[in-house]
Amino acid sequence: MCLWTFKSLLALFADLVRPQHNQHSHCYCCLLHNICLRTVNVIFRNLDTAADCSLSYKELKGLLKSQMTLIDVREKWETGQFGKIPGSINIPLGEVMEALQMNPKDFKERYNQDMPAKSDHLVFSCMAGVRSKKALDIAMSLGFSRVQHYAGGLEEWAKYEPPETKQ
């Protein structure tokens, strides 16, 4: 089922449980309607962000030329062993929550990069897209509004070009 059809069905369901009278806080049908509307809004928001947040190799390659921050959420030993996407900074998944809430001075000291603002464009990557999606969810929960993840990860990147390795 396409996304548009699914959204239309959810909206139709919300209309079906709409009370046929003035809303009351104690009325069962009004409570059901309000719960349904909140649920529909959460589902819409999640569907929209899920559809818009995943990048392909070509999209990421194009973005690397623009003003965005690419964060590799793999462990430090992984970047040492397998390399990284050029231009990325390493913030392991376990540190993402703390890092994105740091004092800008501390962030710069620790990661040798300016602290991203909540309105900055962030892209998360990992080995195969699982951890980057979790990092995306963390960033969104902290109020970052322009976040995406590279679902193919370093595995896909390496099919097109060699990862950057330390010399």
Results as ranks from 00 to 15, higher is better:
47 L>D: 03
55 L>R: 04
83 G>C: 01
81 Q>S: 09
77 W>Q: 14
71 I>M: 10
79 T>G: 13
55 L>W: 03
77 W>S: 10
45 R>C: 12
78 E>C: 13
73 V>S: 00
49 T>F: 08
68 M>R: 05
48 D>M: 04
83 G>Y: 01
87 G>N: 00
78 E>K: 11
84 K>P: 08
52 D>G: 14
78 E>W: 07
57 Y>F: 04
79 T>Y: 15
84 K>S: 13
64 L>E: 11
65 K>M: 06
56 S>F: 04
50 A>E: 15
69 T>S: 09
67 Q>L: 04
66 S>C: 08
52 D>R: 12
68 M>E: 08
53 C>K: 05
82 F>I: 10
54 S>M: 09
44 F>Q: 14
52 D>F: 13
50 A>W: 15
80 G>R: 06
65 K>W: 07
85 I>P: 02
74 R>Q: 09
47 L>V: 05
81 Q>E: 08
79 T>P: 09
56 S>Q: 08
86 P>Y: 01
74 R>C: 11
60 L>K: 01
73 V>P: 03
68 M>K: 10
53 C>F: 13
48 D>I: 07
79 T>W: 15
71 I>R: 13
80 G>Q: 03
48 D>R: 07
46 N>H: 04
81 Q>D: 11
51 A>P: 05
68 M>Q: 12
47 L>C: 06
49 T>S: 12
71 I>S: 07
56 S>K: 09
53 C>P: 04
75 E>D: 15
46 N>I: 06
45 R>N: 10
78 E>T: 07
56 S>R: 06
87 G>H: 00
81 Q>M: 07
85 I>W: 04
61 K>C: 12
73 V>N: 02
47 L>P: 02
75 E>A: 13
85 I>Y: 02
68 M>W: 06
77 W>H: 10
86 P>N: 01
86 P>A: 00
62 G>I: 05
56 S>W: 04
59 E>L: 11
53 C>R: 09
50 A>D: 15
83 G>V: 00
59 E>Y: 08
82 F>W: 12
64 L>T: 13
65 K>V: 07
82 F>S: 10
52 D>E: 11
58 K>A: 11
46 N>F: 08
87 G>M: 01
70 L>Y: 03
48 D>C: 07
54 S>W: 01
83 G>N: 02
72 D>N: 02
54 S>I: 04
76 K>T: 10
79 T>V: 15
68 M>F: 15
